[in-house]
């Protein structure tokens, strides 16, 4: 009797986890559409201009940020792996490192913005910089939102809220963070290199 109840409860949790994951993919799909609009507009503006609208950006800082985000994606994957294994220490350490890398990414972006502002470059300067600030600004907002949620999850992980059977929030966080990384992978060549 008790075994049947346990099995039913486990099936219920599995079903709920399935729904959460589906909801997360749906949300990420809507985010893809959000950035699609920006990308399409950017390409149209570039192709419609008789001359090149592209202004040189700091490639070194852009590349550094790409490496930082890819590394943070790797550490996040290891955090999710640790949570699935019930490795609390591993989860806390890897997620903490991911959070730090996210903050470093924002700091580098801040340095870049400060450079632009000191040179008198603002979103209103020209169409390229309008797109540059729009793209990177929205991306940075996504990073900040991710860092806030990750911070909360980190404290919960330290408290021991997650284990082998309950780690959905960590998985969802992982999906979101990888997505933020994927967006940057497309932004980087579009803005810095081409």
């Amino acid at each position: 009797m008790e075994m049947t109840a346990n099995a039913t409860e486990a099936a219920f949790h599995r079903k709920r986890a399935d729904m959460r994951r589906f909801g997360m993919w749906l949300f990420l799909g809507s985010e893809v559409m959000f950035f699609t609009g920006f990308f399409a507009a950017y390409i149209v503006i570039r192709s419609a201009s008789a001359g090149s609208i592209v202004q040189p950006l700091n490639k070194a800082l852009g590349t550094l940020n790409t490496v930082i985000l890819i590394t943070s994606s790797f550490t996040m994957a290891l955090a999710v792996l640790a949570s699935k294994k019930g490795d609390r220490k591993g989860l806390v350490n890897w997620m903490g490192l991911t959070w730090i890398l996210g903050v470093v990414f924002l700091c580098v972006k801040g340095v870049e913005y400060a450079q632009h502002f000191s040179e008198g470059i603002y979103p209103s300067t020209d169409i390229f910089h309008a797109f540059y600030f729009l793209f990177t600004g929205f991306h940075a907002l996504h990073v900040i939102a991710g860092l806030v949620v990750m911070g909360v999850l980190w404290f919960r992980a330290r408290r021991g809220d997650f284990n082998e059977t309950y780690n959905d929030p960590i998985e969802m966080m992982g999906l979101y963070w990888h997505f933020v990384d994927l967006v940057w992978i497309f932004l980087y060549p579009a803005l810095y290199l081409l």
Binding site: L26, V32, T36, A40, I43
Partner: peptide
Amino acid sequence: VFLFCACLFTIAVMVTL
């Protein structure tokens, strides 16, 4: 769901490109 959105992204980029 996700790949549908990714396909729309690809189409939008390809068409504008």
